[in-house]
Nucleic acid binder design. Structure first.
Lengths: 224, 224
DNA sequence: ATTCAATCGATATTCTATTATCGATATACC
DNA sequence: GGTATATCGATAATAGAATATCGATTGAAT
């Protein structure tokens, strides 16, 4: 197991995992690559290749053992060992992430949040502590936190990022709509909503202009 | 202009755009692909190729005219014409997105939100209306809304998605952690945080186990 | 005016990811 | 038990994206 996996295959893993876990346990205990692909919108060969990289739960004629597959993917993703993280920026988005219950199913545990605004500090409705920014570096170091989540406004993001890194954080998950520069060796993952939106709206406008062109070509333009 | 652009190049466009817009206007009016790439962490050839696809603001020896580049990218992305959208699911994440001021800079205008919980209905602190779900289909049709944003729990996402589509929505931006199936012709963009997280945490654990291996190979394991 | 350095844009190459092909294997049916 | 069929896994082919090469162009320096 653990053959090389592309970043794209890697990001499909949670999709498989989520679907498999939602499967009723009483029904079939096995599932084929074809069936999985059909449900998730992937090609069946891609499914096989992805799964082959992380598991050997596949048997000809039978398909994959659902339960084995689940534990293999979880092990591969490291979801069995929980990653502790801190979050910086207790604005709307930050608090939404703090309250999100789904992270723990993905092996992520946000231990505390930080904000420069003392007014926001205290216990959040999620039950988690929001602490003043001054305590960030120390807490990260003490608790050996490796993951930092940035949900501050763009203008402060770089500064916060550096603070995290000086606290020993090795991976930064950035939700601020800006580019961060990090030293070699620190992992940076941008959650870039503007990028997603660009893809979405471009596809939409392409589709619509394609329709218009088709209509023009068929003489279906506005009748005068 | 408007040569074929890959989805990946497309998602870099907002990154260029954001950086260019943040540039001080009084300083240099031009910028080279090399300088841009250095700031944003892209290769200089990639930058040139990306920009060549949407603009002809590049001049040898001078670089690109910043202002021309900005308007070319904006035009390419369709940010000059605003897209109206609705949002379904006025939970924490939904309200965070409702309040986010940055969307309008990306040509997106959320006209209203919807929720099945009547208690959440009324005016949001963002100033936008939260309406009961029953009004969704009608409003979409009346206002010719083309984009729907889904921020409901996974269990309701498919149902909401179908409601949007029956209201005439042509593009769905899904924040629910689940796979949606949409009819041919409808554009679906999943904002999959679990996928991003998987990439992040895998890279982190790879890095750490690589370090350990290196230490072992160098005889730097725990001294006994 | 001529040369030089910077930088672009187009083409070619390499690398990566997806999709197709095909032999192998496990079960079910006869 | 033998044969047919579904399905896997490995290898090969294709497609797509990133990167390198190179000639062309522009402004600056001599």
């Amino acid at each position: 197991m653990s053959k090389p996996v592309s970043a794209q295959a890697l990001s499909r893993m949670p999709v498989y995992l989520h679907y498999l876990k939602a499967l009723p346990t009483d029904k079939e205990t096995n599932i084929s690559a074809k069936a999985l692909g059909l449900k998730l919108g992937f090609g069946e060969i891609q499914v096989r290749k992805d799964l082959a990289a992380v598991s050997d739960a596949g048997k000809p004629k039978l398909g994959y053992s659902v339960s084995e597959l689940i534990s293999d993917i979880e092990a591969f993703l490291g979801y069995d060992s929980v990653n502790d993280a801190v979050l910086v920026g207790a604005g709307k988005l930050g608090r939404a992430l703090l309250s999100y219950e789904g992270f723990k199913a993905n092996g992520l545990n946000i231990v505390a949040a930080f904000d420069s605004d003392e007014g926001k500090c205290g216990k959040d409705e999620s039950g988690k502590q929001i602490l003043p920014l001054e305590k960030l570096e120390n807490l990260c170091r003490r608790m050996k936190i490796k993951i930092g989540i940035i949900t501050v406004p763009a203008a402060q993001a770089q500064q916060v990022c550096e603070l995290l890194i000086s606290g020993g954080v090795e991976a930064v998950w950035n939700f601020a709509p800006t580019h961060l520069s990090v030293p070699q060796g620190v992992i940076l993952k941008n959650e870039n909503m503007a990028a997603s939106l660009a893809v979405l709206s471009k596809r939409l406008s392409d589709k619509n202009s394609a329709n218009k062109t088709a209509q023009v070509m068929q003489g279906k333009g506005d009748p005068k």
